[in-house]
Write a protein that binds this DNA or RNA. Structure first.
Lengths: 338, 338
DNA sequence: AATGATCGCTCAAACGATTGCTTGAACAAA
DNA sequence: TTTGTTCAAGCAATCGTTTGAGCGATCATT
């Protein structure tokens, strides 16, 4: 026997009809709308709603309330674990609050404005997390002409507020770790073009080195990729005063550095110590990389919390997540060769 | 000077008013609705639409047309690269067709029915990709009571059609690779509980071994995790007729096996050869794992294509992606010890 | 000149909810 | 009995589209 009305597809009207009241009454009861309803009417409505397994039609509700219950996130590439984890954290928080997340991959920065418009103007998302470098003029124009609550994550921008971590502290921690292991000549492999996060990590790193009275840090930068790390380490190893301990901007760069060391016959950690960042997964490198863990999921979640507040009308504000960077000791750091 | 009407928020009514026609005319012009309109009227409408940067309000349109232009995907965990890549492929294809993807992470299988209902009954997605094991009775009931075009990806199910690859061919390829390297005693580490994909890979693997007249393959299974692979390899190494070459169900299992070999003092590949699967990222294991590449992104994309066809009314059908499995030679396979 | 066809557009009803404004009845106070 | 309140619920507009039906005006046909 087929159910008369397919469960889950019932509308307010259906419920109203069988209970014998107006749809507005049903709506008010089901939404706890401040209205007085006789207990028996209320109960009848609730019973009928659960009998037919009523689910509000999100489209209709959203059209009326002018809110979609959807948040967007703009990111370069979901297969990059850094972004996957950020999204992961954002989605957990979004789900708690009843939001869904619309993900837009923006492989090419030049299309980010178009992606923005699609999410904001057409899909009418309630808020947006931006995890791409967004400072193109089209993007700025898009945001200004079609403002929507938005927050940057793990990067700063002149056109909005950010959720970040204390990158400088990460840099300091990396330097301390290497210095404590006994290293006296340190190197830093950063991002080129220099990202805000890279600059802050570098500052923290250099600060500690100088405070410890160490000779100048060798600073090298390359594209944020394995290739970039690979090439950068080669150049580092060509330095006259070759460092014995290096801090790589992130995991990709660190992995590339490891590969370069291998082809040069430089043993890690015997000849060279390496500290990297973002490396939850770096445990499977050879050797496993000692890494500073960035709370990416927390950043994603916090970004959603910020968006919710902004949607409620609170002023945007910068957030620095106050989780001290955590170092995971693995096998890529040892005392320097003597 | 502020723009009079915030660009991008203009409605059909706005355009209709300034051009001096009815909204229905505007709608028909902008949608190429089969209607005859004077060229100058048409042009005026188009001009005005682009002047105010008109974007259709997706909610309103969808409410009316009863289609949301959204597809869903149910998966266990986005931070698992296997799923991230599948989603990646699906999103690329979805974007081409103007769909957005709603991702639902279902950490606990028991909540998958609830996630289904939220996407299908409330958000009213047009189609769903299922990448979780979905055979719980609640899930079956949810699908039956609220049917929506759906397709499983990389797994088979009694309650729908699938997009898969030729897993048996992967198993055959793994066996051939080890046999060609000179191995005569082979092992297989599968999934427990046995997944459909695991079974097929095992069949292909065993088939080739038997055809080559090799002694019985040692078959071991464990949970699909690094721990599972770790424990399984330990048990394999305890066998009287210890294999010299093993095929691990997937990358996680392979990585666990590598770890077990290391603690046992079994050198890879000198003492033991390992072939794994899904291992785009396995290049950074120690040693880098020789792996069979699964076209996950293609599977995701193809799933979307299937959904589109089903939404158009075509009958669901099983799809086996006909890309022959590809082996990437790295450093975990060598001739057996003598 | 009457008829019919075509053109170019308008009308109005949806889609499924939300929400401010009425309203009829019951009841209390005067 | 009249008046004023409160209760319980209904009415109707609205969100921004889409879409079939309708309808004057023009033009061709007989």
């Amino acid at each position: 026997m087929k159910p008369i009305s397919p469960p889950g597809r019932a509308t307010l009207k259906d419920i109203a009809r069988t209970v014998g009241v107006d749809v507005s009454t049903v709506s008010k009861v089901l939404n706890d709308g401040g209205i007085s309803v006789r207990p028996q009417t209320r109960q009848a409505i609730i019973d009928e709603a659960s009998r037919v397994n009523y689910r509000p039609h999100a489209l209709a509700r959203n059209l009326r309330t002018q809110r979609t219950g959807a948040l967007g996130i703009l990111l370069p590439d979901l297969t990059n674990p850094i972004y996957a984890e950020t999204v992961h954290g954002a989605m957990r928080q979004a789900e708690r609050s009843g939001y869904v997340m619309l993900i837009a991959e923006v492989a090419d920065e030049r299309t980010s404005a178009a992606a923005y418009m699609r999410l904001v103007s057409e899909r009418r998302i309630d808020g947006l997390i931006i995890a791409v470098s967004a400072e193109t003029s089209e993007m700025i124009a898009a945001i200004e002409n079609n403002p929507v609550p938005h927050v940057f994550v793990n990067r700063r921008s002149s056109i909005g507020r950010s959720v970040t971590v204390d990158d400088q502290a990460s840099g300091r921690l990396a330097a301390q770790t290497l210095i404590e292991a006994g290293h006296r000549r340190l190197g830093f492999i950063g991002a080129l073009p220099e990202l805000d996060t890279s600059r802050r990590r570098r500052h923290g790193f250099v600060e500690v080195c100088q405070a410890a009275g160490l000779p100048a840090v060798v600073e090298i930068a390359g594209p944020v990729s394995r290739r970039g790390g690979y090439d950068a380490l080669h150049r580092l190893l060509d330095e006259a005063q070759r460092p014995t301990g290096v801090f790589a901007f992130n995991m990709l760069v660190g992995i590339g550095a490891l590969a370069a060391a291998r082809v040069r016959g430089v043993r890690v950690p015997d000849d060279l110590s390496v500290v990297t960042l973002d490396g939850e997964d770096a445990i499977f490198t050879a050797p496993p990389l000692t890494a500073i863990i960035t709370p990416l999921a927390e950043m994603g979640a916090r970004a959603v919390v910020e968006l919710e507040a902004m949607i409620q009308g609170r002023e945007p504000q910068d957030v620095v997540i106050n989780i001290p960077p955590k170092l995971v000791y693995r096998e890529s750091v040892a005392p320097p060769p003597r």
